[in-house]
């Protein structure tokens, strides 16, 4: 099931690497992940069976970023 999220706090290439790393570990397929370095915000599109609340919780725990579903 496809879902899109906004991630607040991403400001560099390694922030992207971190999110990719976490998602890889929990087996979530990334459709796209783009980072706006000036706005310090990332847009994440995924295809997963996980519930959105689970995803946002895991991401926040592992990365510290605030994740909201859009």
């Amino acid at each position: 099931m496809e879902a899109t999220f906004k991630i607040k706090g991403m400001h560099c290439k390694s922030c992207k690497a971190l999110v990719e790393d976490v998602l890889l570990d929990i087996g979530v397929k990334i459709v796209s992940l783009t980072v706006d370095e000036t706005k310090k915000e990332g847009t994440l599109k995924v295809n997963t069976i996980l519930k959105p609340e689970e995803l946002t919780k895991t991401l926040k725990e592992e990365t510290g970023y605030v994740v909201t579903k859009i």
Binding site: S14, C15, A17, L18, D21, D25, T63
Partner: peptide, 11 residues
Amino acid sequence: MCESCNKVIER
């Protein structure tokens, strides 16, 4: 370079 790098290595 930043906190995220630290976290990547931590993991």
